[in-house]
Structures are given as structure tokens and as C-alpha cells.
């Protein structure tokens, strides 16, 4: 399934895009997504201090990514 992935902060700079599309297998987990992400963008191999949000809520590594989910990569936040 094609999934939309939003990138922010340093991750957007490293990839050079603020939004990408990744082909993911059905019923994979957030963990599987992260693997696919680093395979596709090796520049992220040395940068893994981010968490994942699905549909605007924080997700865990074992959360299932469903078709049409919006994935966001959230590097350490620094608001305030």
C-alpha cells in the first residue's frame, strides 16, 4: 500500500523533502515502517532519535500501520 509520510525538522532537512510516499506491506508495524524508511533513505541510518505519529497521535513500535494512515516522523520537539 502507498502511504503518505510527513517529515519535520532535522529529518526533513536530511531527506530533502517535507512529504514522501512509501510503499509498505499491508498490516506491517511502525517498526517495519522504520526499517523500510532507513532502507529507502540511508542518510537516516545514523539518525534514529525520532518517534512516529499515526493520524496525528503518537504511535508505538508495535502499532499496526493501516491503509490510508498518515505517518509523521517526529524528531525531538523543541517548542516553547
Amino acid at each position: 500500500m502507498q502511504t503518505q509520510v510527513l517529515l519535520f525538522g532535522i529529518v526533513a532537512d536530511l531527506v530533502g523533502e517535507s512529504s514522501i510516499n512509501l510503499e509498505l506491506k499491508m498490516d506491517g508495524t511502525v517498526s517495519d515502517f522504520k526499517k523500510k524508511l532507513t532502507e529507502t533513505y540511508p542518510q537516516l541510518q545514523n539518525y534514529n532519535t525520532y518517534v512516529i505519529a499515526l493520524n496525528e497521535s503518537y504511535a508505538l513500535d508495535d502499532t499496526i500501520v493501516k491503509d490510508n494512515d498518515v505517518i509523521a516522523i517526529i524528531p525531538p520537539v523543541s517548542g516553547g
Binding site: F8, G9, I10, A53, Y58, I74, V77, S78, G79, G80
Partner: peptide, 14 residues
């Protein structure tokens, strides 16, 4: 509120 905001709200500063 401010402590939690700095930990959880997806805002980034450069």
C-alpha cells in the same frame, strides 16, 4: 502545561 508542551507538542525551532 509548559513542561509538557516542551516534551510532547510537535513544534521545532531552528
Amino acid at each position: 502545561a509548559i513542561d509538557t508542551l516542551k516534551e510532547t507538542v510537535p513544534i521545532w525551532k531552528k
